[in-house]
């Protein structure tokens, strides 16, 4: 899927900024709304080229649905991660078995890779060290499978099926 048109990218940026403005001001005063709208127009004009590549098609209902489904899944993984951390930190013997492994991802979009790396950082026992092309280097606190395929299956796969839809990698 190629880049969206400039108008679509611009409008998408305006919408996102305006929603953030509504959250920041927390009021429906017409003055605040007007100011926020004008500011969104100005800032979007300055930054839409770097902010988004696909424009309004990001707001497709299917993608929003997957995003909504991703949030509880991610939060659950994060809570598990913290219980895992608690176990490792509070255990008197400090059961760790660290190492840096390499995993392969099928995602091609930069933002999808960013979200994947961030998700990996916040979920049990793993933290992304670097990204090169389609390879991610992961610091794993408890290495179970140092091979490329095994690690990919263990770390990246659960997130990828969501991210592939959310960030246009589904073709």
């Amino acid at each position: 899927m190629g880049e969206a048109s400039k108008v679509s990218r611009y409008l998408y940026t305006v919408i996102i900024l305006f929603v953030i403005w509504l959250f920041l001001t927390n009021s429906l005063d017409p003055q605040e709304l007007t100011m926020g709208f004008v500011l969104s127009l100005i800032i979007a004009a300055l930054t839409y080229q770097v902010f988004t590549k696909y424009g309004l098609s990001n707001l497709h209902p299917k993608r929003i649905l997957y995003t909504v489904a991703y949030i509880p899944y991610f939060l659950w993984a994060m809570i598990m991660a913290n219980l895992d951390v608690a176990y490792r930190v509070l255990h008197p013997k400090r059961p760790i078995n660290p190492g840096i492994v390499e995993i392969k991802t099928n995602l091609t979009n930069d933002i999808a890779k960013l979200v994947l790396a961030n998700s990996i950082t916040l979920t049990p026992g793993t933290m992304s060290v670097d990204v090169k092309g389609d390879r991610l280097y992961i610091h794993w606190i408890d290495v179970k499978d140092p091979s490329l395929e095994g690690a990919s299956k263990h770390i990246g796969k659960p997130f990828e099926k969501f991210l592939r839809v959310i960030f246009h990698d589904d073709n």
Binding site: L17, I20, L24, T25, L39, I43, F51, L114, N118, K132
Partner: peptide, 26 residues
């Protein structure tokens, strides 16, 4: 910078500018 930092700064740029504008307008 790594790809993550580059992409992250691209995504964060409009938001930080909006925060700045919010601070000085209020």
């Amino acid at each position: 910078g790594s790809l993550i930092l580059k992409t992250g700064s691209r995504v964060l740029l409009p938001f930080i500018m909006l925060f700045g504008a919010y601070i000085f307008i209020h």
